[in-house]
Amino acid sequence: HRKAIIFGIATGRRLDDALTTLKLHNISQPDVLITGQGTEIHYAPNLTEDAVWGRHIDHLWNRQAVRDILMEIPGLEMQPRRYQSAFKISYYIDPAVADIQNIRQILLRNEQAVNVIFSFGQFLDVLPVRASKGLALRWCAEQLGFPLENTLVAGVTGADADMLRGNTLGVVVDNRHLAELSDLANIDKIYFSKKPHAAGILEAMNHYNFFSKALEDTTS
């Protein structure tokens, strides 16, 4: 089905880390690889980086100002340098000590227009306001010309929330971080799978009759 399908992966990992993980699990190189929580986009076959996207998300971004503002927040600890990038500031967070909504408000009061992403119960990423997995997905749809309404999107944590919202075919794959996506439970076009991992994605494909619809679109 590869000729009828564009295969993409969106991850919070760095590019090299993502490629290592794909190789470890014998997963084919995707047509589109979104990394760093949506701050970088790479296209097959040579993993060419979308430089225009980088310039687009740089709007209003002040990395040093964000770091300075959050430096003394209790319950936040900077992750090691290898997890940082030009457009992503990554922390470990203790949600029992640091309030995520309060962090968002502090940044807003200090005139920092950013996206604050909480995931896996312990990670907090601060990104430019124009960057996220969902925004990167929609950029790719525009660049490559694929319809969002025929795009199956699978997510497992809070970092995937905005990618699942909208007019895509969403699936929340069963996992221990479901509480981070509980707000999506009442949205019609988001399916909550009973099975975890890849089995949950296959379950959603059957639910949406995904491959049949994709083939119909290519032959109509």
Score class of each variant (00 low, 15 high):
Gly134Glu: 00
Lys133Thr: 00
Gly134Pro: 02
Ala179Ile: 11
Leu169Lys: 05
Arg165Gln: 15
Asp188Met: 02
Gly54Arg: 15
Phe210Asn: 07
Val66Trp: 04
Phe7Cys: 04
Ile187Gly: 03
Thr157Glu: 11
Val97Cys: 05
Ile9Gln: 00
Ala51Glu: 14
Gly121Cys: 07
Asn209Leu: 08
Gln143Tyr: 01
Leu181Cys: 12
Thr219Gln: 13
Glu149Gly: 09
Ile57Pro: 02
Gln122Arg: 06
Ile9Trp: 00
Leu19Ala: 03
Pro45Trp: 06
Asn150Gly: 10
Val173Glu: 03
Thr39Trp: 01
Val153Ser: 02
Leu184Lys: 10
Asp160Trp: 00
Ala4His: 11
Val52Trp: 05
Ser212Lys: 13
Ala159Leu: 08
Gly166Ser: 08
Arg138Asn: 05
Tyr43Val: 09
Asn26Thr: 14
Ala18Cys: 06
Trp61Cys: 00
Gly158Gln: 08
Ala199Val: 02
Ile57Arg: 04
Tyr191Ala: 03
Trp61Met: 01
Trp53Asn: 04
Leu148Asn: 03
Asn186Ala: 13
Asn206Glu: 15
Ser193Asp: 04
Gln112Leu: 15
Gly170Ala: 07
Gly12Val: 08
Gln37Lys: 01
Asp50Met: 02
Arg130Gln: 12
Gly8Pro: 02
Thr219His: 12
Ile190Asp: 09
Gly54Lys: 14
Arg2Lys: 05
Tyr92Leu: 13
Asp162Pro: 10
Lys189Cys: 11
Phe87Glu: 11
Leu178Ala: 13
Arg104Gln: 11
Met78Gly: 15
Thr218Val: 12
Val172Ser: 04
Leu148Ala: 01
Glu49Asn: 07
Ile73Phe: 13
Ile41Tyr: 01
Gly75Met: 07
Asn110Asp: 10
Gln101Trp: 04
Ile41Asp: 09
Leu169Thr: 04
Asn62Val: 04
Arg55His: 08
Ile93Ser: 05
Glu142Leu: 09
Tyr43Met: 05
Ala113Ser: 12
Ile27Gln: 10
Ile103His: 11
Gln64Trp: 00
Asp17Lys: 12
Asn167Phe: 06
Ile6Gly: 02
Tyr208Pro: 09
Tyr208Val: 08
Leu135Glu: 11
Lys213Gln: 15
Ala65Trp: 01
Leu152Asp: 05
Asn102Gln: 15
Asp188Thr: 08
Asp31Cys: 00
Ala141Ile: 03
Val153Thr: 05
Val114Gln: 10
Cys140Ala: 01
Gln112Lys: 15
Arg104Leu: 06
Lys88Arg: 13
Tyr43Ser: 08
Ser182His: 10
Leu148Phe: 02
Thr219Asn: 10
Trp139Gly: 07
Val129Tyr: 12
Lys3Ser: 11
Gly121Thr: 07
Leu19Thr: 06
Pro45Cys: 09
Ala96Asp: 12
Gln64Val: 02
Ser85Trp: 01
Gln37Gly: 01
Gly121Phe: 00
Ala65Pro: 03
Pro128Lys: 03
Ala179His: 14
Thr168His: 08
Cys140Thr: 04
Arg165Ser: 10
Val126Tyr: 04
Ser220Trp: 06
Asn175Cys: 13
Phe120Ala: 14
Ile73Pro: 04
Ala198Gln: 15
Pro30Gln: 00
Asn150Arg: 14
